[in-house]
């Protein structure tokens, strides 16, 4: 298990050195989007329109933050469950998206897209929302403000701790970790 400091936008070279189980401290711009924003982005693509941001090399954080208090850029901001973005992620990866941040399993199609187009799915700790939110440096709504917590935001983060969950080689951290610890509760605890 290696540790890397990376800054967005990510390149193929960044992605191919990452293996499931590695830790990444991510800095730079990440974009937020969840179900409703993804539906709109896919609709935009279907209609031949532009996405609200240039997707190449970017990382999308699946999050719907709580409201910012005065003087703060954002409220709490932990990951939402990623499988709901299964229908959308492969298409965006094919367009150059390099990473997703979320929690929970995604589909085999997402894994295949990560392998084919060199991308990674990063797992964040579900529920560590106050820790992440208090570490966000800047936040700005750049699209779909009427979606409220689901609007697309441009965040600037510094050293956001992430686990490489699906790498570009088809490995799956959740499966690896489960296998390693299965059966050990009764024998060691």
């Amino acid at each position: 298990m290696a540790e890397y400091k990376l800054t967005t936008p990510l390149t193929d070279d960044d992605i191919i050195k990452l293996k499931a189980g590695d830790m990444v401290y991510l800095s730079g711009v990440v974009y937020t989007a969840r179900d409703a924003a993804h539906m709109r982005m896919i609709k935009a693509l279907d209609e031949g329109k532009e996405l609200p941001f240039d997707i190449k090399g970017q990382v999308i954080y699946y999050v719907g933050p709580s409201p910012a208090r005065p003087g703060r850029p954002i409220g709490s901001a932990g990951p939402t469950t990623a499988y709901r973005m299964n229908p959308f992620a492969p298409r965006l990866i094919a367009l150059g998206q390099k990473g997703m941040i979320g929690k929970g399993k995604m589909s085999d199609e997402v894994k295949q897209a990560c392998m084919k187009y060199k991308a990674c799915y990063f797992a964040s700790i579900g529920g560590a929302a106050a820790v992440v939110g208090s570490a966000v440096k800047e936040a700005e709504i750049i699209a779909y403000p009427e979606l409220g917590p689901e609007a697309v935001r441009r965040l600037v983060v510094e050293d956001m701790p992430l686990f490489v969950c699906y790498d570009s080689y088809g490995n799956d951290l959740y499966e690896m970790a489960k296998k390693e610890w299965a059966g050990k509760f009764t024998t060691t605890a």
């Binding site: 709580s66 700790i125 529920g127 929302a129 106050a130």
Partner: peptide
């Protein structure tokens, strides 16, 4: 440990335990 830290940060009253309240 991260979960414990999250609980501490939240208890200060500015950031709720989870964004999904």
């Amino acid at each position: 440990e991260t979960i414990f830290k999250n609980i501490e940060v939240s208890a200060q009253g500015e950031f709720p335990l989870c964004q999904d309240t």
